[in-house]
Protein backbone atom coordinates (compact mmCIF):
# COMPACT_ATOMS: atom_id res chain seq x y z
CA UNK A 1 0.00 0.00 0.00
CA UNK A 2 1.38 3.41 -0.92
CA UNK A 3 1.68 6.40 1.31
CA UNK A 4 -1.15 8.88 1.74
CA UNK A 5 0.44 12.28 2.16
CA UNK A 6 -0.91 15.63 3.26
CA UNK A 7 1.11 18.69 2.23
CA UNK A 8 0.37 21.90 4.13
CA UNK A 9 0.96 25.21 2.44
CA UNK A 10 0.36 23.87 -1.09
CA UNK A 11 -0.01 27.39 -2.46
CA UNK A 12 3.44 28.43 -1.28
CA UNK A 13 6.69 27.88 -3.11
CA UNK A 14 7.71 24.93 -0.94
CA UNK A 15 4.32 23.24 -0.85
CA UNK A 16 4.12 23.37 -4.64
CA UNK A 17 7.65 22.12 -5.11
CA UNK A 18 7.26 19.25 -2.69
CA UNK A 19 3.94 18.20 -4.21
CA UNK A 20 5.47 18.18 -7.69
CA UNK A 21 8.28 15.96 -6.48
CA UNK A 22 5.89 13.63 -4.66
CA UNK A 23 3.78 13.19 -7.78
CA UNK A 24 6.74 11.57 -9.50
CA UNK A 25 6.98 8.88 -6.84
CA UNK A 26 4.72 5.88 -7.66
CA UNK A 27 4.93 4.80 -4.01
CA UNK A 28 2.84 7.79 -3.02
CA UNK A 29 -0.78 6.82 -3.43
CA UNK A 30 -2.58 10.00 -2.47
CA UNK A 31 -1.40 13.59 -2.19
CA UNK A 32 -3.68 16.13 -0.60
CA UNK A 33 -2.62 19.73 -0.46
CA UNK A 34 -3.98 22.25 1.98
CA UNK A 35 -3.70 26.01 1.81
CA UNK A 36 -5.56 29.29 2.01
CA UNK A 37 -4.47 30.18 -1.52
CA UNK A 38 -4.62 28.24 -4.74
CA UNK A 39 -1.57 26.34 -5.94
CA UNK A 40 0.72 28.38 -8.14
CA UNK A 41 2.30 25.45 -9.96
CA UNK A 42 0.80 22.86 -12.25
CA UNK A 43 -0.02 19.62 -10.49
CA UNK A 44 -1.27 16.33 -11.96
CA UNK A 45 -2.77 14.30 -9.18
CA UNK A 46 -2.51 16.42 -6.07
CA UNK A 47 -5.90 17.27 -4.60
CA UNK A 48 -6.19 20.84 -3.43
CA UNK A 49 -8.32 21.67 -0.40
CA UNK A 50 -8.87 25.24 0.64
CA UNK A 51 -8.49 25.94 4.36
CA UNK A 52 -8.48 28.97 6.60
CA UNK A 53 -5.15 30.15 7.90
CA UNK A 54 -5.24 28.18 11.15
CA UNK A 55 -6.28 24.94 9.50
CA UNK A 56 -9.43 24.25 11.48
CA UNK A 57 -10.68 21.59 9.03
CA UNK A 58 -7.52 19.49 9.44
CA UNK A 59 -8.90 16.85 11.76
CA UNK A 60 -11.77 16.05 9.40
CA UNK A 61 -9.48 15.97 6.40
CA UNK A 62 -6.90 13.69 8.00
CA UNK A 63 -9.62 11.27 9.04
CA UNK A 64 -11.50 11.33 5.75
CA UNK A 65 -8.46 10.78 3.53
CA UNK A 66 -6.73 8.38 5.96
CA UNK A 67 -3.58 10.43 5.80
CA UNK A 68 -0.51 8.62 7.15
CA UNK A 69 2.17 11.22 6.47
CA UNK A 70 2.01 14.99 6.96
CA UNK A 71 4.55 17.26 5.30
CA UNK A 72 4.25 20.54 7.16
CA UNK A 73 5.94 23.03 4.82
CA UNK A 74 3.92 25.99 5.91
CA UNK A 75 5.92 27.44 8.77
CA UNK A 76 6.63 31.06 7.91
CA UNK A 77 10.36 31.67 8.34
CA UNK A 78 10.51 35.05 6.61
CA UNK A 79 8.66 37.86 8.34
CA UNK A 80 8.45 39.96 5.17
CA UNK A 81 5.90 37.53 3.74
CA UNK A 82 3.04 38.12 6.13
CA UNK A 83 1.85 40.43 8.88
CA UNK A 84 2.91 39.64 12.46
CA UNK A 85 -0.60 38.49 13.30
CA UNK A 86 -0.79 36.04 10.40
CA UNK A 87 2.71 34.82 11.20
CA UNK A 88 1.68 33.86 14.72
CA UNK A 89 -1.65 32.50 13.51
CA UNK A 90 -0.24 30.18 10.88
CA UNK A 91 2.92 29.11 12.71
CA UNK A 92 1.70 28.56 16.24
CA UNK A 93 -2.06 28.06 15.94
CA UNK A 94 -1.71 26.23 12.63
CA UNK A 95 0.78 23.77 14.07
CA UNK A 96 -1.33 23.24 17.19
CA UNK A 97 -4.30 22.34 15.01
CA UNK A 98 -2.10 20.06 12.96
CA UNK A 99 -0.90 18.24 16.06
CA UNK A 100 -4.45 18.03 17.40
CA UNK A 101 -5.56 16.45 14.12
CA UNK A 102 -2.65 14.01 14.14
CA UNK A 103 -3.39 12.86 17.67
CA UNK A 104 -7.18 12.68 17.41
CA UNK A 105 -8.58 9.27 18.28
CA UNK A 106 -8.47 6.91 15.32
CA UNK A 107 -5.86 9.05 13.54
CA UNK A 108 -3.87 7.15 10.93
CA UNK A 109 -0.95 9.58 10.96
CA UNK A 110 2.36 7.77 11.47
CA UNK A 111 4.85 10.32 10.30
CA UNK A 112 5.15 14.09 10.53
CA UNK A 113 7.83 16.07 8.71
CA UNK A 114 8.21 19.75 9.53
CA UNK A 115 10.15 22.41 7.66
CA UNK A 116 11.67 24.71 10.27
CA UNK A 117 14.61 27.08 10.09
CA UNK A 118 18.05 27.60 11.61
CA UNK A 119 16.63 30.92 12.80
CA UNK A 120 15.83 28.99 15.98
CA UNK A 121 19.53 29.33 16.90
CA UNK A 122 19.55 33.10 16.54
CA UNK A 123 22.75 34.93 15.69
CA UNK A 124 24.77 36.34 18.57
CA UNK A 125 28.41 37.17 19.25
CA UNK A 126 28.69 34.41 21.89
CA UNK A 127 27.69 31.74 19.37
CA UNK A 128 29.91 28.83 18.38
CA UNK A 129 30.96 28.72 14.73
CA UNK A 130 28.89 25.58 14.20
CA UNK A 131 25.58 24.88 15.90
CA UNK A 132 24.74 21.24 16.39
CA UNK A 133 21.11 20.21 16.80
CA UNK A 134 21.65 20.09 20.57
CA UNK A 135 23.39 23.46 21.00
CA UNK A 136 21.26 25.88 22.94
CA UNK A 137 20.97 29.46 21.72
CA UNK A 138 23.11 32.05 23.46
CA UNK A 139 20.46 34.70 24.06
CA UNK A 140 16.67 34.73 24.19
CA UNK A 141 14.96 35.39 20.83
CA UNK A 142 14.37 38.99 19.80
CA UNK A 143 12.47 38.57 16.56
CA UNK A 144 8.97 37.28 16.00
CA UNK A 145 10.01 34.57 13.56
CA UNK A 146 12.52 33.16 16.01
CA UNK A 147 10.16 33.10 18.96
CA UNK A 148 7.29 31.60 16.99
CA UNK A 149 9.53 28.86 15.54
CA UNK A 150 10.87 28.08 19.01
CA UNK A 151 7.33 27.81 20.32
CA UNK A 152 6.36 25.51 17.46
CA UNK A 153 9.41 23.29 17.98
CA UNK A 154 8.50 23.09 21.66
CA UNK A 155 5.05 21.73 20.79
CA UNK A 156 6.61 19.27 18.35
CA UNK A 157 9.02 18.02 21.02
CA UNK A 158 6.16 17.42 23.42
CA UNK A 159 4.14 15.74 20.71
CA UNK A 160 7.05 13.43 19.79
CA UNK A 161 7.53 12.53 23.44
CA UNK A 162 3.82 11.80 23.98
CA UNK A 163 3.22 9.88 20.78
CA UNK A 164 5.89 7.24 20.36
CA UNK A 165 3.95 5.71 17.46
CA UNK A 166 4.33 8.85 15.31
CA UNK A 167 7.75 9.63 13.88
CA UNK A 168 8.41 13.37 14.01
CA UNK A 169 11.16 14.85 11.83
CA UNK A 170 12.06 18.51 12.19
CA UNK A 171 14.32 19.85 9.45
CA UNK A 172 16.02 23.16 10.22
CA UNK A 173 16.99 24.83 6.98
CA UNK A 174 19.68 27.43 6.66
CA UNK A 175 19.48 30.43 4.27
CA UNK A 176 17.96 29.11 1.06
CA UNK A 177 19.21 30.23 -2.34
CA UNK A 178 18.43 28.92 -5.77
CA UNK A 179 17.18 29.80 -9.22
CA UNK A 180 13.53 30.31 -8.26
CA UNK A 181 13.10 31.03 -4.56
CA UNK A 182 12.76 34.65 -3.46
CA UNK A 183 14.22 35.39 -0.03
CA UNK A 184 15.35 38.66 1.59
CA UNK A 185 19.01 37.72 1.11
CA UNK A 186 18.45 36.79 -2.55
CA UNK A 187 16.70 40.13 -3.01
CA UNK A 188 19.66 41.91 -1.41
CA UNK A 189 22.06 40.18 -3.79
CA UNK A 190 20.03 41.25 -6.81
CA UNK A 191 20.34 44.96 -5.95
CA UNK A 192 22.94 47.01 -7.86
CA UNK A 193 24.92 47.22 -4.63
CA UNK A 194 24.59 44.61 -1.91
CA UNK A 195 23.66 45.96 1.55
CA UNK A 196 25.90 44.93 4.42
CA UNK A 197 26.43 46.20 7.96
CA UNK A 198 29.49 48.48 8.07
CA UNK A 199 32.40 46.90 9.90
CA UNK A 200 30.95 43.38 9.89
CA UNK A 201 31.73 40.63 7.44
CA UNK A 202 29.73 37.68 8.80
CA UNK A 203 30.12 34.14 7.53
CA UNK A 204 26.91 32.68 6.15
CA UNK A 205 25.81 29.25 5.11
CA UNK A 206 23.42 28.53 2.25
CA UNK A 207 21.35 25.60 1.12
CA UNK A 208 20.12 25.09 -2.43
CA UNK A 209 16.34 24.98 -2.97
CA UNK A 210 16.63 21.53 -4.60
CA UNK A 211 18.49 20.16 -1.60
CA UNK A 212 15.67 21.50 0.58
CA UNK A 213 13.06 19.53 -1.37
CA UNK A 214 15.29 16.47 -1.61
CA UNK A 215 15.90 16.44 2.12
CA UNK A 216 12.16 16.53 2.81
CA UNK A 217 11.61 13.59 0.46
CA UNK A 218 14.57 11.83 2.06
CA UNK A 219 12.93 12.19 5.47
CA UNK A 220 9.68 10.86 4.01
CA UNK A 221 11.30 7.78 2.52
CA UNK A 222 13.73 6.88 5.26
CA UNK A 223 11.71 7.56 8.38
CA UNK A 224 14.33 9.45 10.38
CA UNK A 225 12.79 10.81 13.57
CA UNK A 226 14.57 13.69 15.25
CA UNK A 227 15.80 17.20 14.61
CA UNK A 228 18.24 17.85 11.76
CA UNK A 229 20.14 20.81 10.40
CA UNK A 230 20.03 21.10 6.62
CA UNK A 231 22.63 23.34 4.98
CA UNK A 232 25.31 23.21 2.34
CA UNK A 233 28.96 22.70 3.18
CA UNK A 234 31.09 25.68 4.07
CA UNK A 235 30.72 29.20 5.40
CA UNK A 236 31.14 32.18 3.09
CA UNK A 237 31.92 35.75 4.16
CA UNK A 238 29.09 38.02 2.99
CA UNK A 239 31.66 40.12 1.10
CA UNK A 240 32.71 37.04 -0.86
CA UNK A 241 29.09 36.19 -1.66
CA UNK A 242 28.65 39.69 -3.08
CA UNK A 243 31.88 39.28 -5.04
CA UNK A 244 30.67 35.96 -6.49
CA UNK A 245 27.65 37.90 -7.76
CA UNK A 246 29.92 40.59 -9.18
CA UNK A 247 28.62 43.23 -6.77
CA UNK A 248 30.06 45.88 -4.52
CA UNK A 249 28.93 46.31 -0.94
CA UNK A 250 26.68 49.09 0.30
CA UNK A 251 27.36 49.61 4.02
CA UNK A 252 24.46 50.28 6.39
CA UNK A 253 25.34 51.95 9.69
CA UNK A 254 26.16 49.47 12.48
CA UNK A 255 24.05 51.50 14.91
CA UNK A 256 20.45 52.08 13.86
CA UNK A 257 20.69 49.34 11.24
CA UNK A 258 16.98 48.64 11.61
CA UNK A 259 16.13 52.22 10.64
CA UNK A 260 18.41 52.08 7.60
CA UNK A 261 16.76 48.82 6.57
CA UNK A 262 13.38 50.52 6.86
CA UNK A 263 14.60 53.26 4.57
CA UNK A 264 15.64 50.62 2.03
CA UNK A 265 12.19 49.13 2.29
CA UNK A 266 10.46 52.49 1.82
CA UNK A 267 12.65 53.16 -1.22
CA UNK A 268 11.14 49.91 -2.59
CA UNK A 269 14.51 48.32 -3.06
CA UNK A 270 14.61 45.45 -0.63
CA UNK A 271 12.93 44.43 2.60
CA UNK A 272 15.48 43.12 5.06
CA UNK A 273 13.61 41.76 8.11
CA UNK A 274 15.16 41.82 11.61
CA UNK A 275 16.04 38.13 11.48
CA UNK A 276 18.05 38.71 8.28
CA UNK A 277 19.81 41.73 9.77
CA UNK A 278 20.91 39.59 12.71
CA UNK A 279 22.50 37.10 10.37
CA UNK A 280 24.16 39.92 8.41
CA UNK A 281 25.86 41.05 11.64
CA UNK A 282 27.16 37.86 13.22
CA UNK A 283 26.46 35.12 10.67
CA UNK A 284 25.57 31.55 11.52
CA UNK A 285 26.88 28.08 10.79
CA UNK A 286 25.19 24.76 11.47
CA UNK A 287 26.68 21.29 11.72
CA UNK A 288 25.00 19.05 9.14
CA UNK A 289 26.60 15.74 9.99
CA UNK A 290 23.56 14.35 11.78
CA UNK A 291 21.47 14.03 8.60
CA UNK A 292 24.50 12.87 6.57
CA UNK A 293 24.95 10.03 9.02
CA UNK A 294 21.55 8.75 7.89
CA UNK A 295 22.77 8.78 4.31
CA UNK A 296 21.57 12.09 2.91
CA UNK A 297 23.89 13.64 0.31
CA UNK A 298 23.84 17.25 -0.83
CA UNK A 299 24.01 18.30 -4.46
CA UNK A 300 25.32 21.76 -3.67
CA UNK A 301 27.78 23.32 -1.26
CA UNK A 302 27.10 26.80 0.13
CA UNK A 303 29.22 28.30 -2.63
CA UNK A 304 27.57 26.03 -5.22
CA UNK A 305 24.15 27.32 -4.20
CA UNK A 306 25.30 30.92 -4.54
CA UNK A 307 26.75 30.23 -7.96
CA UNK A 308 23.65 28.46 -9.25
CA UNK A 309 21.46 31.25 -7.92
CA UNK A 310 23.57 33.82 -9.67
CA UNK A 311 23.58 31.94 -13.00
CA UNK A 312 19.78 32.01 -12.92
CA UNK A 313 19.73 35.75 -12.17
CA UNK A 314 22.07 36.43 -15.09
CA UNK A 315 19.87 34.40 -17.39
CA UNK A 316 16.75 36.21 -16.19
CA UNK A 317 18.40 39.57 -16.70
CA UNK A 318 18.98 38.68 -20.34
CA UNK A 319 15.89 36.77 -21.41
CA UNK A 320 13.37 37.82 -18.78
CA UNK A 321 10.99 35.60 -16.86
CA UNK A 322 10.66 32.35 -18.80
CA UNK A 323 8.46 30.27 -16.54
CA UNK A 324 4.94 29.89 -17.83
CA UNK A 325 2.34 31.59 -15.69
CA UNK A 326 -0.01 29.00 -14.32
CA UNK A 327 -3.48 29.77 -13.05
CA UNK A 328 -5.48 27.35 -10.97
CA UNK A 329 -9.00 26.80 -12.35
CA UNK A 330 -11.15 24.65 -10.12
CA UNK A 331 -13.45 23.31 -12.85
CA UNK A 332 -10.63 22.52 -15.22
CA UNK A 333 -8.66 20.66 -12.53
CA UNK A 334 -11.77 18.75 -11.44
CA UNK A 335 -12.44 17.72 -15.05
CA UNK A 336 -8.96 16.35 -15.67
CA UNK A 337 -8.84 14.49 -12.39
CA UNK A 338 -12.30 13.06 -12.00
CA UNK A 339 -14.31 13.14 -15.24
CA UNK A 340 -14.93 9.72 -16.76
CA UNK A 341 -14.39 11.34 -20.17
CA UNK A 342 -10.65 11.71 -19.53
CA UNK A 343 -8.65 8.60 -20.46
CA UNK A 344 -6.21 8.00 -17.62
CA UNK A 345 -3.33 5.56 -17.56
CA UNK A 346 -3.99 2.68 -15.22
CA UNK A 347 -2.11 3.05 -11.99
CA UNK A 348 0.78 0.56 -11.80
Amino acid sequence: MGKRVLVTGLGTFWGGRVAQALERDPDIEVIVGLDTTEPSVELDRTEFVRADENYSILARLVKAARIDTILHTFLVVDSTEVSPRVLHESNVIGTMNLLAAASASGSTVRSLIVKSSTHVYGSNPEDPVWFTEETRRSRPPRTLVESSLLEVEGYLRDFAADRADVSVTVLRFSNVLGPDIVTPLACALELPMVPCIAGYDPRLQFVHEDDVVRSMLFALEHDVPGVFNVAGDGLLPWSEVARMCGKRLFPLPPIGTGLAARALKLARTCDLPPEALEVLRHGRGVDTRQLRRHGFRYDYTSAGAVEHFWQAVRLRETVGEVEPIYRYERDVEAFFRHSPAVVRDEAP
Binding site: R243, D299, Y300, A303, G304, V306, Q311, A312, V322
Partner: peptide, 17 residues
Protein backbone atom coordinates in the same frame (compact mmCIF):
# COMPACT_ATOMS: atom_id res chain seq x y z
CA UNK B 1 14.59 27.56 -15.83
CA UNK B 2 15.54 25.55 -18.89
CA UNK B 3 19.15 25.46 -19.94
CA UNK B 4 20.65 26.13 -16.53
CA UNK B 5 23.66 24.20 -15.38
CA UNK B 6 22.54 21.49 -12.99
CA UNK B 7 24.15 20.29 -9.82
CA UNK B 8 27.91 20.14 -10.08
CA UNK B 9 28.51 17.85 -7.13
CA UNK B 10 29.86 18.63 -3.69
CA UNK B 11 33.49 18.36 -4.82
CA UNK B 12 33.20 21.43 -7.03
CA UNK B 13 33.59 24.68 -5.13
CA UNK B 14 33.52 28.03 -6.94
CA UNK B 15 34.90 30.05 -4.03
CA UNK B 16 36.81 33.26 -4.53
CA UNK B 17 38.34 33.90 -1.11
Amino acid sequence: LPGLGGPTGPAYDPRLG
